[in-house]
Design a protein around this nucleic acid. Structure first.
Length: 108
DNA sequence: GATCAGGCTCTAA
DNA sequence: ATTAGAGCCTGAT
């Protein structure tokens, strides 16, 4: 196989996977990476999301770490966690900064 | 080309 | 439950 370039080839693929996360479900970075064909690039997913998320339609808030915990703590003007608010808006319960993966994890 | 950092993950204590 | 160390890979300096 030729050399893979994240920005050029895998990024759209990763975003595509994230777009497939159903409403009311969450997926871990590792899971997204794995579905995108990048079993060990969990960090890349986060890295890319970090650069892409503002004003993006991408459901980056449905992506959490392997333990279902919110890692970014990005606050809005009201000092509340944006990701948590978005998840709550979808019916995903965020308790103590984390979601119940047993209930909300995206089952492929 | 070497070095550093990152929204991770796993295992162990 | 929490902390610490190591592994993994890429993008940016």
């Amino acid at each position: 196989m030729e050399k893979l370039s994240i920005s050029a080839e895998l990024a759209p693929q990763i975003f595509s996977v994230i777009e497939q996360i159903p409403y009311g479900c969450v997926a871990s970075y590792g899971q997204v990476a794995r579905l995108a064909g990048l079993p060990k690039h969990a960090r890349l997913v986060g890295y890319l999301l970090k650069r892409l998320h503002p004003q993006s339609d991408l459901a980056w808030h449905r992506v959490v770490n392997a333990q279902g915990q919110i890692q970014v703590m990005q606050l809005d003007a009201q000092g509340q966690n944006i990701q948590q608010l978005k998840l709550c808006a979808e019916g995903i319960i965020v308790y103590h900064g984390r979601v119940n993966l047993n209930k909300f994890a995206w089952q492929v």
